[in-house]
Nucleic acid binder design. Structure first.
Length: 585
RNA sequence: GACCCCGUAGCUCAGAUGGAUAGAGCAGCGGACUUCUAAUCCGCAGGUCGCAGGUUCGAAUCCUGCCGGGGUCGCCA
């Protein structure tokens, strides 16, 4: 049982009871009461802020209020010791039996460890990657891809019903460019000497197969068509092939989306949902025709002062109103995005997460404003910005030039260092912080590499199980009978420390899920691994602390239970991050 | 000029939605291998949490103003 949530409930109940008995006022803000692990170990096992957060509303001194709560806590048989400390903290030391019981509940949970009903089955849509289908994914896409995927896992683990979504930008100018570029490759495939790909088109070789495929499917017929029909055909074919390539790249990172949503489908002439969305905004008075002030600082060369159709996003927290129509009358990207987010909402996603690169920072306010407006305030959109990744080779930044088509592809990185290190390192940093990705360090097989460090802890734990089988043959560690295992043997400081950390797993997962911050889990796994490596090494100087003790069967059994619990937590956490929990290295 | 992110040990970074004496890793110094995997561990040293105010029992965390670094800035996506 997770002591933090358990005792939060117990303390809150005490406060409510005291209110009912008129010892304390009623209507105290009990939801602010939390029970947490204290920062200092010598403060005990648990600490609560109850007295301090309630003192104001109760019009009592924190320490006096604490005394009332402590009177009740002392009657709790699971508590060994309670004291009031500092400004009014209540420090709790749990009964000795508690921690072994915690381990037992982890073992009982099995591979469902850390799962919770936090989300209560609520649908959440996580949109990530959504790269333009104009070429293969490059490293820049990598971080958002891994982040979004791990976040989706995290939300699933905490009881949300998650849909992983990819928005395909298959409309607009860059798709025309793609089609024109593919047409050159088509001519090339038909044997024409095309020379260099003209400026402004995509020179990448990844379009060569598209040209060949067009030739095979359509022969010479494309040449005879008028350009409009021809490009329409090529566009569709090229986008399909680019998306197949992108999905393949993502597969290399174990990333699979549930829904691929076409931008083009929104503007279907028979059912123009962008128009519908704009109309909906217009009905609530959020659309008008007017002029925007020119941006301060340097004025764009082609600035043209003119009337345009605007969304009143300033009413919803944006800095300026935003254009919905371009000068040629077609929809802006923003307009189709509004329709898209409305569509998500109508599909049942009041809860939406969008993962994008930090260069989209300017998009946050207008998009949250739009979702707010179009859903009548009922939809929530959390936009997570991922900062750039700086690739380093031998400590030197890897230079990339987009124009020369000279960028490191996502596939190259995954093939060079492997899926697990890529995923872990992308998550071993807060999403808003820039990230250095050093090829040499990431591939290193040592404790300096956190990926390796955590995987090694898991492998090491498995190595204990393997050894146990050999040392104590009649003890099958894979089928520990919990009822016959006496976990009270686990009373060494290091063992208790491990259990305490394992007990924090559930709350770490919940916290990370609520804050949409998967990196917390990565750091937690590192910490847990560290505690294990540390305890392990104690067995060198003190052989009686080793997990396997052939002369002491019951003791060994309890310690193998601890190993099992550790494996469950590490494997679960790694699984959420999408990193393989290897058993042998 | 406006907006967003960042500023914590020499370096790279955590810091749980406001808690107690601010933590890791690297680099530095000193230790532990006839091993349940030393692919690891233990110890030492290292700080004006960018600066200045404010909010309160209490601030690295919230507010305001500066300083420094990065990103973005009608119709691109």
């Amino acid at each position: 049982m997770n002591p933090y949530s358990e005792f939060t409930t117990r303390v809150r109940r005490i406060v409510i009871d005291l209110g009912r008995e008129a010892v304390l006022p009623t209507d105290l803000p009990v939801e602010r009461v939390v029970v947490e692990p204290p920062r200092q170990a010598d403060h005990g096992d648990l600490a609560t802020n109850a007295a301090m957060v309630l003192a104001g509303a109760a019009k009592m001194k924190p320490r006096d209020l604490a005394a009332r709560v402590v009177e009740r806590l002392e009657k709790d048989p699971d508590i060994a010791e309670v004291e009031i400390a500092g400004p009014g903290f209540i420090n709790i030391r749990l009964a000795k039996a508690w921690w072994p019981e915690t381990l037992k509940s982890i073992l009982e949970a099995g591979d469902r460890v850390g799962r919770s009903e936090l989300g209560a089955g609520m649908p959440v849509n996580v949109e990530y990657v959504s790269a333009n289908p104009t070429g293969p994914l490059h490293v820049g896409h990598c971080r958002g891809a891994v982040f979004g995927d791990a976040l989706a896992n995290l939300l699933e683990h905490t009881g949300y019903r998650v849909t992983r979504e990819y928005y395909i930008n298959d409309a607009g100018a860059q798709i025309d460019t793609l089609a024109k570029s593919a047409y050159h490759r088509y001519l090339e495939a038909r044997g024409e000497d095309i020379g260099d790909i003209p400026d402004g088109l995509y020179p990448g070789e990844y379009l060569i197969p598209v040209g060949k495929s067009l030739d095979q499917e359509f022969g010479e017929s494309l040449i005879k068509m008028d350009e409009k029909d021809r490009l329409a055909i090529i566009r569709e074919k090229a986008v399909a092939m680019m998306m197949a390539m992108i999905r393949d790249d993502l597969e290399a990172l174990d990333i699979r989306h549930d829904v691929f949503f076409s931008e083009k489908s929104l503007a279907d002439p028979d059912n123009d949902r962008i128009a519908t969305a704009i109309e909906a905004l217009r009905e609530q008075g959020a659309v008008y025709t007017g002029k925007l002030p020119p941006p301060k600082g340097q004025l764009p060369d082609d600035w043209e002062d003119r009337e345009q159709t605007l969304f009143r996003s300033t009413d919803f927290g944006d800095d300026v109103d935003r254009a919905l129509l371009k000068s040629d009358g077609s929809y802006t990207y923003f307009a189709s995005d509004i329709a898209y987010h409305l569509d998500k909402y109508q599909r049942g996603f009041a809860n939406q997460v969008l993962v994008v690169g930090a260069d989209h920072g300017g998009y946050v306010k207008r998009m949250t404003a739009a979702v707010n407006a179009i859903t009548g305030g009922k939809g929530a959109l959390d936009i997570k910005l991922c900062q750039l990744v700086r690739l380093l080779r031998d400590g030197q930044p890897v230079k990339m030039s987009k124009r020369a088509g000279d960028f490191v592809s996502l596939r190259d990185v995954v093939e060079e260092v492997g899926k697990d290190p890529v995923r872990f390192m992308m998550l071993y940093r807060k999403n808003e912080a820039p990230l250095d990705f050093d090829f040499a360090k990431v591939k290193e097989q040592s404790k300096d590499n956190p990926v390796f460090y955590v995987q090694y802890a898991h492998a090491r734990a498995h190595s204990v199980l393997r050894n146990a089988k050999l040392t104590i043959p009649d003890l099958d560690p894979s089928s520990l009978d919990l009822s016959e295992t006496d976990f009270s043997f686990l009373n060494d400081e290091g063992e208790i420390e491990l259990i305490k950390l394992m007990a924090q797993y559930a709350r770490t997962v919940e916290g990370a899920a609520l804050a949409h911050e998967p990196h917390r889990l990565a750091f937690y796994l590192y910490e847990l691994s560290s505690a294990f490596h540390s305890h392990w090494n104690k067995g060198k100087e003190s052989p009686q602390l080793r997990f396997i003790n052939p002369d002491k069967r019951a003791l060994s059994k309890a310690r193998l239970g601890l190993i099992h619990g550790l494996i469950l937590v590490l494997a679960s956490g790694l699984d959420i991050l999408g990193v393989d929990a290897v058993r042998e290295m």
